[in-house]
Design a protein around this nucleic acid. Sequence first.
DNA 1: TTGTATGCGTTATCAA
DNA 2: TTGATAACGCATACAA
Lengths: 338, 338
Amino acid sequence: MATIKDIAKAAGVSVTTVSRALNGYSDVNEKTRIRIRKVADELNYSPNAVARSLVMSKTKTIGLLVSELNRSGAKDMFMFEVMCGINDAASDNDYDLILFSTNPAKQQAKSYSQLCRERQVEGVIMQGIKSHDPYLQEIIDSNIPCVLVDVELEGENVGHVTTDNVFGSQMAVKHLINLGHEKIAMLNGHDQAAVSRKRLSGYRKALEEAGIPFKEEYVMNGEFREDQAETVAFNFLTRNNEVTAMFCASDLMALGVLRAARRIGISVPEKLSIVGFDDITLAQYSHPQLTTIAQDKYQMGYEAARLLTAMLEKSTKKRRIILDNQLVVRESTTQLNS
Amino acid sequence: MATIKDIAKAAGVSVTTVSRALNGYSDVNEKTRIRIRKVADELNYSPNAVARSLVMSKTKTIGLLVSELNRSGAKDMFMFEVMCGINDAASDNDYDLILFSTNPAKQQAKSYSQLCRERQVEGVIMQGIKSHDPYLQEIIDSNIPCVLVDVELEGENVGHVTTDNVFGSQMAVKHLINLGHEKIAMLNGHDQAAVSRKRLSGYRKALEEAGIPFKEEYVMNGEFREDQAETVAFNFLTRNNEVTAMFCASDLMALGVLRAARRIGISVPEKLSIVGFDDITLAQYSHPQLTTIAQDKYQMGYEAARLLTAMLEKSTKKRRIILDNQLVVRESTTQLNS
DNA sequence: TTGTATGCGTTATCAA
DNA sequence: TTGATAACGCATACAA
């Protein structure tokens, strides 16, 4: 592989001049520049980013830390779509992405800051992390800029992007209320998830505004899992047949509820209206198709990477981005016919 | 950030000794090693992989080149699942992954080898590339090891992993034949895809073996797209109502056919049996659920990365891995009742 | 068992 | 406008 040294020799100049010529500095004679460019082309030169990184202490690299990148996350294409957005924004801003996928075992072996410093990433985007993850504290303590997806942490070097979960849930529940429902249950994720707490509060708000009393017994957790949701919903629905609508904190769980309803013989939406959250691909393919709160997952990723690059270039003081959600009405909800 | 220099100073030894102590060389006194380790811990040292890469000319990095990593690929989680496998295998073999996403514009700007040399990746895994992609020739010419997913190229430095597409298709069509079908159409992808050619040949083979004449008019292309498949199938099925079964080169297209059939009023599977290919997540959620040929996407990725690392370490002469597929019978196929 | 010196490919400082 | 030289953090050949 040709280096600037080779070019220097071939062009009869010093490496300094080659470096400057190739990097577009003004203090180099146009003729020499052209000659050097020509030689570089002939030698099929490409700069060695590793060497450059070492001397500049800038790697132009963002670490993409994904907790448990695995098949189980495949169903809701959530991660993937976010990644697409991150990838595009990073690329637009001239950063490369290096993939770190962690799991508890790896976290034990290597600390967050070790991971980052080893590869000399300039910043990090984290996704799929739970609010009790041990890395979280390290992120705060560390001085390397980090943007979190769906974890509401802020600080000098840490920002986040999320969607308006409270309002999104309000929309969902309000939609049900507008359809005449009053006995509305909620199938939430789990208490460790920030989004779960937000969505619960949106649910309560909507009920409150409509003057419907909040009932503790109407709220349950499905761990964001389809099978778990099915089990929980099955038990709940067999016991509470006065309930006419259910708001689920994820589409995947809504799919589980759909199953449970089918098993019990409750027809959706005639006897039970269901609203999901996320608008995953599957939401359009289920029967009935899911009414849901759509999150722009691609946009979340895009904004996350954009925020990070802005932080890296110190061109912003912003540390929080909240995107709007949208109610998508499909087939799983309908007017209550009392 | 602490460097070995700092450690050397603090421990009162030379950088050489530090380097050797930390890298587990035998020619260093155990006591000094322990002291150095302690100092390193105190200074919260982590090695700088960039510097190490430069001097060793080994980056322990694999480039993951994904053509058009974007939302459109989100529906079939194909890429994502393959990526999960790649990620795991790379991690198991102590390589990191750097994400390159290309598109025609970027390819214009930067050649394959430039891309690789800049980041000094040791090897590359490519996915989602079409058989007329300009990078393909560069891959062959280049001396940097590369493993392709679903593109059957081989050479000194290039290998591939794919599944047995011919046999997979044979299984699919044979399944239909066993159910009594004889008028079996095929909805293929496009001619630029190697897998399409393979799957077509499997289709022909199965027909041949059963003594059913191959009919050119029964084969069409749907570009691997759901909407395109729907259109093509709609036109075809309205004109050829003698056809009782259709083999699709992807599940996504099978979903399109399902739509077309519904629009026309052909019930599936009673009047039309459909077999897909891939076994994407959606296949289990459609109505009826798709009978399909399952490819182990995760395994494809895992094997790809494993093959590449083996090539990098020159521990194998193998350049081709072919995985078996599996027929998964669900609800979209049934006995022909004539 | 330890240290000195050199180099990896690049950019940056300073002098010419 | 150009060049000599040092530096980035690390590994290694060689010397001690």
